[in-house]
Design a protein around this nucleic acid. Structure first.
Lengths: 222, 222
DNA sequence: CGAGAACTGACAACGGACTGACAAGGCGGA
DNA sequence: TCCGCCTTGTCAGTCCGTTGTCAGTTCTCG
């Protein structure tokens, strides 16, 4: 899961980054509106946390421009407490949720997760696909209910597949969502992770559509 | 365990702080309603002791706002003796327990501990996880029933893990619950405590999920 | 049957985690 | 009040799990 944090207050930005990383996100952060506009418009994020009060370019404007450009990432905006109108404007501008400052990190994480799940059309924190179970909160995977130890990177991959269970995900997309725009990796890296996951999960869980990408086998949930 | 004390009477506040610290809590204190609202809304406490009679912002109002914001920390309210209606209102507003003033410190501590345990979904004062036993009242730990001497900080860590036995706790969260938002510590501090605990408790008690955090091994309770 | 895509085992580099040593701070006893 | 012990944070060195790359093999489809 890639997340973009747009926040000019360094301390808060650092907190956000830390918390989101601990929650399994791949975090990138920018501190002003123009940079935000650029990044959000260029890259593909699974979640954007947007402070409205920004230097250079107002957060609301940024959000509107993103939406106008066709960016569909779920956006969680941070508003000043009691700034009633801001929330309304934010929702109007295309925000998916808002959180009044100050807030508890725990709550932000909870909402962030909810947004990501909702964006994937799934409301539950534990995803079941065939024999596989992925628990997004505890960051665990299991086959037939038996826990399988997975590394952080492996978990990011398998959970991304679980959230996109109904389509085949191309390797380039996985690459992007695992590493961000740090494109220094060889395409083969994804294949390696897939292999390792298959060894752990057993056959019949991760399928390949040659030329298209990978998907989870939604075989009998038995 | 992090605790927030909201009490404007300095003498009582000091007593509370001392007693809770002695009981193993990491205590932060504020003296008025607004500060309370802010802290409780921002930070993550395992327990909140709230006096209802506060300057600037009424305790009941503070409590209601917390609950409205999604704060789930257990709250123990202090009411004036005989203020019958206050109790009812407090419970309605989302308090978990109340204590009429004046009270005996002993009783407050007992109730505080009960609340913390209940909040973790565990009603018992002694937690059993695998071969480990943690007694939250006496602040002792034991392996296979044999007492192991632990320092106050070590106890805070091990008891937090015990109360969160069913998940892996990231180091950042431990850092927060051990030291509050005083983030002057190096992340390495947690590792040091873990090492010391392991030396005392023996192997197979505290497990590591590399890249995720620490957890208690819930091996055979034998 | 050939070419390209995908798989996989081996290896090396990286970084997170562990640990022992040391120093600072706190607390209790003399 | 002073001294000494216990506790605890930091540092540095080491270890080991994780992960990227490479190379060789297998598979699939035209």
């Amino acid at each position: 899961m890639r997340a973009l944090v747009v926040e000019d207050e360094p301390r808060i930005a650092a907190d956000l980054e830390r918390a989101l990383k601990a929650a399994g996100f791949l975090v990138e952060a920018v501190a002003d509106g123009e940079a935000a506009w650029f990044r959000g418009g260029t890259e593909n994020y699974d979640l954007i946390v947007l402070d409205l009060n920004l230097p250079r370019l107002d957060g609301l404007t940024v959000l509107k421009r993103w939406r106008a450009e066709g960016c569909e990432s779920p956006v969680l905006i941070l508003t000043a407490r009691g700034a009633w109108t801001e929330r309304v404007e934010g929702i109007d501008a295309g925000a998916d949720d808002y959180l009044p400052k100050p807030f508890r990190m725990e709550e932000l994480i909870a909402r962030a997760r909810a947004l990501v799940r909702r964006a994937g059309g799934r409301g539950n924190a534990t995803q079941q696909v065939g024999r596989l179970t992925v628990d997004l909160n505890r960051m665990t995977a299991a086959i037939d209910g038996i826990p399988v130890p997975v590394t952080p990177l492996e978990f990011r991959l398998i959970s991304y597949l679980a959230l996109n269970r109904d389509r085949t995900v191309p390797p380039t997309e996985l690459l992007e969502h695992l590493y961000g725009d740090d494109d220094s990796r060889e395409a083969n890296a994804v294949e390696a992770i897939i292999t390792r996951l298959r060894r752990k999960l057993g056959p019949g869980v991760i399928g390949t559509r040659r030329g298209f990408g990978y998907h989870l086998e939604n075989g009998p949930t038995a």
